[in-house]
Design a protein around this nucleic acid. Structure first.
Lengths: 99, 99
DNA sequence: TGATTATATCGGAATTATCCGATATGTCAA
DNA sequence: TTGACATATCGGATAATTCCGATATAATCA
């Protein structure tokens, strides 16, 4: 839970998470796999946010630790998509009695 | 909007905001004014979070700038309560297409 | 007015976050 | 198994945050 807020506290983290909601608007198209079912591949995200490879990897790891994104590896590529369940739960906590 | 996420990105800020939801659980009782209608007075919040006067003042100012809390000054006391409208709006943004 | 109490603002020390390059690992293709 | 590519991890430089004490302001009361 603490990990979750920490991940959300980050500008770029939020930017990635938002971008993953509408990938075609925020990230360049990828060669294989539908962005909404499989997810967005790493390099596409990296290009979209415009940070170094290692930095983007760090952010994605943080988002994953907070289970704000789901990760799927296919061959040599890694695909990321939002974990809507976690996000919905957080929204509920915020909206109702929560923090 | 950016100011808002920045305020929420903060552990103690979140703690205060959460405390303000159930003041009787998180802050010592105050002499005058109902915590739910008037708000919680500064010194009560300060005692609750256990930080210096100036630090707590900083946090409350940040929360106010983000309109996450409403502030009312009565005489020499300042009362704070959650701005549920802002919080609800944020929850909605999170839950729906938002960041 | 001057003393007292409540809160705000300011400057800075210590901690933490951001972001990078270098390097390691994991996967596939030849 | 080697080489090429995709991604992860590590160490560190710089920038930002956290939190404090000192001090300023604001309100009240004698």
């Amino acid at each position: 839970m603490i990990e979750l807020f920490k991940a959300l506290s980050n500008r770029k983290g939020l930017e990635i998470l938002h971008g993953l909601k509408h990938p075609e608007k925020h990230f360049p198209p990828q060669d294989e796999g539908d962005v909404h079912t499989v997810g967005v591949c790493f390099s596409s995200i990296q290009e979209g946010v415009g940070l170094s490879q290692s930095t983007v990897s760090d952010y994605l790891a943080t988002l994953q630790r907070a289970s704000l994104v789901e990760v799927r590896r296919i061959g040599q590529w890694t695909y990321y998509k939002r974990n809507e369940a976690t996000i919905r739960a957080l929204a509920e906590i915020l909206g109702k009695g929560g923090s």
